[in-house]
Amino acid sequence: MKNSKLFYIALLIVPWLTIPFLGRNAFKKYLPAAIFITTFTKALDLFGEKKKWWRIYKGIPPLDSANFFNFGPYLIASLWILKFTFGKFPLYLISNLILHICFIYLGGLKFLKHYKIASLEKLTKLQYLTIHFLRGLILYGFQYINNFSNTKKHSNK
């Protein structure tokens, strides 16, 4: 892809343009969880690549292509899904599962492979869906604990 640098930069920047619509309070409230899950995902990317579960392509040095996806659309999507569903766990589970099913089975994986971001190697789509589902539980759990600890801090003042 001859415009890959421009594509990677757009992949990173364009999702951030939606932040003003998220609202300052939601951004501050959910950013720690989004950063945590993005960092966790980066560690999982490295582990999965070592185990040859998937392949991560080169990006723009020093970043690999998955960094542009993780710190762009994935981080911002984590903020948005928490904003709309946090505190409504069944809705969160259903929404998260539907989003991941659509991503995995309706073109997201093809998008990643076509634009040389990542591709599955030894994992089936169902195994990959399971990893996404578990990551979703970790994201919600982190936000729940963070929310609980912040509530406790404010009640002790």
Score class of each variant (00 low, 15 high):
F36I: 02
F36D: 00
F36T: 00
I37K: 11
T41P: 03
T41Y: 13
T41D: 12
K42S: 09
A43S: 05
A43G: 02
L44R: 02
D45Q: 07
D45A: 14
L46P: 01
L46K: 11
L46E: 09
K51Y: 09
W53E: 12
Y57M: 06
Y57K: 03
I60Y: 05
I60M: 04
P61A: 15
P62E: 04
P62G: 05
L63W: 13
L63C: 09
S65M: 09
S65Y: 09
N70A: 12
F71Y: 14
G72D: 06
G72Q: 10
G72V: 03
G72F: 11
P73D: 01
Y74Q: 02
A77D: 03
S78L: 05
S78V: 02
W80G: 08
W80H: 07
L82K: 08
L82N: 06
L82A: 05
K83I: 01
T85S: 15
G87L: 07
F89W: 14
F89Y: 15
F89S: 07
P90H: 06
Y92P: 13
Y92R: 12
I94T: 11
L97C: 07
L99D: 00
L106W: 10
L106H: 03
G107C: 08
G108L: 13
L109V: 10
K110N: 11
F111Q: 05
L112E: 04
K113F: 01
K113E: 10
K116P: 04
A118M: 14
A118G: 08
S119V: 04
L120N: 04
E121Q: 09
E121F: 02
E121K: 12
K122Q: 12
L123H: 00
L126T: 05
L126S: 09
L126E: 08
Q127G: 06
Y128A: 07
L129D: 03
H132Q: 04
L134V: 09
R135W: 05
